[in-house]
């Protein structure tokens, strides 16, 4: 799957804008361009990313930030908790 995601660094909020099948990368990139241009016109500067993965769960493992800052914090805490449990 291809995911088009908007992430605002100031607020730490992420918005998953669309999902496309792997065969529609062109559509995903076109979508990304439209969102980038809208942001430009509004004088905003979010990060717009296009990620390709088998599932959202995979994206969570590698790019937790794009689920929002709170999810990133939770993910970090879970990793540390796991490390503590392994230690014991």
């Amino acid at each position: 799957m291809i995911f088009v995601i908007s992430y605002d660094r100031r607020s730490g909020r992420a918005e998953w804008l669309a999902e496309y099948p792997d065969s529609e990368m062109g559509c995903a990139q076109q979508h990304r361009l439209e969102v980038e241009l809208e942001a430009l016109a509004a004088n905003e500067s979010p990060e717009i990313v296009v990620l390709s993965a088998e599932s959202k769960a995979q994206v969570l493992k590698t790019h937790a930030k794009y689920f929002g800052r709170q999810t990133l914090e939770d993910s970090l805490k879970a990793s540390l908790q796991q490390a503590r449990e392994t230690r014991q």
């Binding site: 291809i2 990304r32 717009i48 390709s52």
Partner: peptide
């Protein structure tokens, strides 16, 4: 490249198709 990476590992490989304009 990505299919080669995915064939070489059982670990999760997530592709970022185009760095964000901002970055």
């Amino acid at each position: 490249v990505l299919p080669i990476v995915r064939s070489a590992t059982v670990a999760t490989a997530v592709d970022r198709s185009g760095k964000s304009f901002l970055s």
